[in-house]
Simulated assay, not measured.
Amino acid sequence: MSTFHVPAVDISAYVRGGTPAERAAVAAAVDTACREVGFIQILGHGVAPEVAAGLAGAIDDLFGLPLEVKRRWRRPSWENRGYTPPKSETLALSAGVQSETRMKDFFEAFNVGSSVSDHPGATLVEEHYAENTWPEVEGFRERVDAWRVEAGRVAHTMVEIFEDALGLERGAIGDRAAHPIEVLRMNNYALPEGTEVQLDEHLIGMGEHTDFGIVTILWADRVKGLQVLHGGAWHDVSPADGALLINLGDLTTRLTNEQWLSTLHRVKPPIVAGAIQRRRSAAYFFDGDAEAVVGPLAGFVDERHPRLYADVTVEEHIAAKLAGSRAGVLNPDAGREATRVLAAGA
């Protein structure tokens, strides 16, 4: 029987201003989790239950609408905003993995994020800060924005913890996120009623992939489906009640020269009594400034740890990843991630 579990860490010492000893204990626990698993459950994050309930209600209200209504809010794939219909993405391509047998991922999604108008006076790579499309759903924007504010706060807190856990000076990571590319992706894992589908091993809710940026703050309901690659096998992950899931992104992997690895994960369809059970999640991607240059930090490169990555801008990295997942172009720069996927027999 598998003994795999996602470590739970109470980060309240960073949220409420704990003692140096309390903060050091949190940082040490996070370091261990990031080196051994790459996924963390955090408690003591300070997000009020009513804010999470508001997000869940907004997700339900949006995805409960007819498909033809939701399609009105579709945007070009490169803008990374608005509605994504079912079976229009293949996340495995972003990780450099091609499979002729796999159907398109069957989740539907809605994306909002930081926009040019959120950063007056800043010189931005505008295609990564597109203005949002807001659906005509009562109270949707207010509920979603309330969650975005809290998720952003948690992301900044996690960056601070990461710096302490890695023994870095304050700002070593955070200074790359003065005006971060920030996307909240709300996901619904269900096919429209009446859709015919073969329930076999090739059916995938969201293909195996790593997240692109620095850190992801994930709210998810407790329906099974999310799986993490660890020790060469896939393991089910469900958050504890009230917990948020934290996973590392590729940029943190590059900064640490793979001392911390971005976590390969996927969503398999939750099937109950021969039918797909609905599952919801919302991933807040904290990706850093578009123009920021990311490569292994000096302290993580030595004779025993040769430099594994060339420098890349956040913009270049995100563009290559999105071209894979949303435009169907195999990512040629994801060789290290692809090797990990293929080694697991995914």
Rank of each mutant, 00 (worst) to 15 (best):
M186K: 00
M186G: 01
N187Y: 03
Y189E: 08
L191W: 05
L191K: 12
L191Y: 09
P192H: 11
P192I: 12
E193Y: 13
G194I: 09
G194A: 04
T195L: 08
E196C: 14
V197M: 09
Q198L: 13
L199P: 02
L199W: 03
L199K: 05
E201I: 08
H202G: 07
L203I: 13
M206W: 07
E208W: 01
E208G: 12
E208A: 15
H209I: 10
H209S: 05
T210R: 13
G213S: 09
I214S: 03
V215Y: 02
T216C: 14
I217N: 01
A220F: 00
A220V: 00
D221W: 00
R222Y: 02
K224I: 02
K224T: 09
G225W: 06
V228F: 13
V228K: 06
L229E: 03
G232D: 05
H235P: 06
V237L: 03
S238Y: 00
D241I: 04
G242E: 03
L244M: 05
L244I: 09
L245W: 05
N247T: 04
L248D: 00
L251Q: 11
L251W: 00
L251A: 11
T252S: 09
R254T: 05
L255V: 09
T256W: 03
T256K: 06
Q259W: 08
Q259E: 13
Q259D: 10
W260F: 15
L261S: 14
L261Q: 14
T263A: 15
L264R: 02
L264K: 04
L264W: 02
L264V: 10
H265V: 11
H265C: 07
H265K: 08
H265Q: 06
R266A: 09
R266M: 06
V267S: 04
K268S: 15
P269L: 10
P269D: 12
I271D: 05
V272R: 15
V272F: 07
A273P: 02
G274S: 02
A275W: 00
A275E: 14
I276H: 05
I276D: 07
I276R: 14
